[in-house]
Amino acid sequence: MRKQIAAIAAACAVAMIMSAGPALAHPNASNGARGNSSHSTPTPVTEVASQLISPLKVAFGSNGSFLVAESFVGQLNSYSAQGVKTSLVNAPGQEIAGVSYLDGITYYFDNDQGTGPEPGGELLPARLMSLDQQGTTRQITDLSVFEANNDPDGATVYGVRDASAECLAQAPYLQATGELFSHPYSSAPVRGGVYVGDAGANAILHVSNTGNVELVKALPAEAITIDASVVAVAAQVGMVVPDCMLGLKYYAQPVPTDIEINGQWLYYTVLPGVPGESLGAGKAYRMNVNSGTTQLLAQGLAAPTGIAVDKTNNVYVAQLLGDGVSVIKNGQVSNVLPAALASDVEVGGSTLAALTNSLAETGGSLVTTGLRNGR
């Protein structure tokens, strides 16, 4: 069993095909805030740019600009507040991902793409790049080298762990260890380096400015109870779940989809691999980078792929298969920006920027809205 949700964007496209309607919160979710349909009255929304091709990550750039990774076409573009486009990176055939910005430096990933039918089939170069204001590009490190030497989840057992030998023999594809695969997808720069969410390694890493890579956290597998909804999802991807596994836990791959640094806290979203991405089993966490203490902020999220934090520590999440961008505040989750296919969210000052309709055939949009006091 390889990671069928290894490449986040490809995985979410699969999830959309499997989902005939809005994603449902998984009935076994507990502890922490849950995703819900409550709404705040939205402020006016401005569409900065439209017809973007697979816009999956956004960051605030210099002079009021927005940096957008249009991943499937290998582009990194800057958009002014008036929507004027400037091409920064154009690399057809590559995946450009995880754009972020700090002190005049733009960071992004330049990931090689495999030729096989399934992501994760081979270990390919996954480069963390920097781009300065003079247009000079530098490769900081190739994260696939760290994966080859360390493989943080290589010993983790995914799938069904507690089935009897006779039961597992009926569906051996429902258990495997982590594959050797690097897919850096999100970044958060700080003084001296960059935190990286590696969606292939299922880990959060820190890369120094000189390219030294250290493991910050190997994410634990996400447990999902096998019930009728799990069986139905498995059937849709051609997998049979035997009756003897009903009621057992399925340990899904804990794919990190976005990270954000705010003070000593690192915030991150997790989209559990099959079957979690189509069952509304996504979660948001925060981890103290000094102590390692981790707190669950919200669960029952519908494919969370973006996270941001404002100056009053309110947490925002973009739910690709949910109802847009929501805020997590005082243990409650409420919608603040209704939208379809919201792939990312960023907050700068009193402005919220989001990518919407990100996988739509008509193209995605970069939109902004103002944040009111107390939200």
Rank of each mutant, 00 (worst) to 15 (best):
I8P: 12
C12L: 15
A13V: 14
M16L: 15
M18V: 09
S19E: 12
N28C: 00
N31R: 08
T41A: 12
P44G: 03
V45A: 07
A49D: 07
V58F: 13
F66S: 07
N77K: 15
A91S: 13
G93M: 04
S100C: 08
T106A: 01
T115D: 15
T115E: 15
E118Q: 12
G120T: 03
A126M: 03
G135Q: 12
G135M: 12
R138F: 09
A155F: 00
D162K: 09
Q170M: 07
Y173I: 04
P184I: 00
Y185W: 13
V190G: 11
G192M: 06
G193T: 08
V194R: 07
V196S: 06
G197E: 03
G197D: 04
V207A: 12
S208L: 06
P220T: 00
A223C: 04
A223D: 03
V230R: 02
A232F: 12
V237H: 05
G238S: 04
M239I: 13
C244W: 03
P256T: 03
D258A: 14
L266C: 11
Y267C: 02
T269I: 02
G273P: 04
E277L: 10
S278L: 08
G280A: 04
K283T: 01
A284T: 02
M287D: 10
V289G: 08
A302N: 15
P304K: 05
G306E: 01
V309L: 04
Q319M: 05
L321D: 08
S326D: 05
V333G: 02
S334K: 15
P338T: 06
G348T: 03
G349V: 05
A354R: 06
A360H: 11
T362G: 10
G374R: 11
